[in-house]
């Protein structure tokens, strides 16, 4: 009986010692609204369309890959081919964040790498439908100018390509001629040229 009491008391004191030691440590909690912890670089939230520098806007070409791969079926993309352009542009991009599982598969498959994660963290709403996000909102007002630039760039690229093709053809022709001339020179028997 006495032994039991003693062991009990000892284990109680050992426990108290640990608690006592920890009581004087710095608190591990942070006072949220006043203190903010650093957000991880890999943080995942609702997906967003990332601005691409070379486009000056998002670069969603409505390929529909993300829509198809999404396990939660929460992406809706529609797009059109603007007048005089080869590239398609998205005209509608909606995500139902209430369904998204933040798996990142859509980011993996996007051929233009235009998807990323938002850094928001405190979304709240009264119903499911409050989490329907229209990802094109930040880009809508400049869409026309972006299209114009893209169109110009495309035309320029096409012209450059055409020029390059022409140049290449010319070079090839020149080379051929030179070859032909070369063939003639050493042999000296080019009778049909």
């Amino acid at each position: 009986m006495l032994k039991q009491t003693l062991t009990g008391a000892r284990s109680l004191l050992t426990g108290m010692k640990v608690t006592f030691k920890n009581a004087f440590k710095k608190p591990v909690t942070s006072q949220y609204p006043r203190e903010r912890i650093e957000m991880s670089q890999a943080y995942r939230n609702v997906i967003v369309l990332v601005e691409k520098e070379d486009v000056g806007s998002h670069d969603c070409i409505d390929c529909g890959m993300c829509e198809r791969v999404c396990p939660s079926f929460c992406i809706k993309v529609e797009g059109e081919r603007p007048e005089g352009m080869k590239r398609k542009r998205a005209t509608r991009f909606e995500v139902d964040f209430a369904l998204c599982s933040e798996c990142g598969l859509c980011l993996d498959v996007c051929p233009t790498d235009t998807l990323g994660y938002s850094r928001e963290f405190d979304q709240a709403g009264y119903g499911r439908n409050d989490f329907l996000y229209d990802l094109l909102i930040p880009y809508r007002d400049r869409e026309e100018t972006v299209r114009d630039t893209l169109r110009a760039a495309e035309a320029e690229a096409a012209a450059a390509k055409k020029a390059a093709v022409a140049k290449k053809a010319a070079a090839k022709k020149a080379a051929e001629e030179k070859d032909a001339a070369g063939d003639e020179a050493p042999g000296g028997d080019g009778d049909d040229s």
Partner: peptide, 24 residues
């Protein structure tokens, strides 16, 4: 969880692995 969060971006329901490797 903080350590894992720094590479996976999630705290509990990770989707870190991919067939053939890991995401980050």
């Amino acid at each position: 969880l903080d350590i894992l969060d720094s590479i996976t971006g999630s705290r509990l329901t990770y989707c870190y692995g991919r067939f053939g490797g890991v995401t980050m």
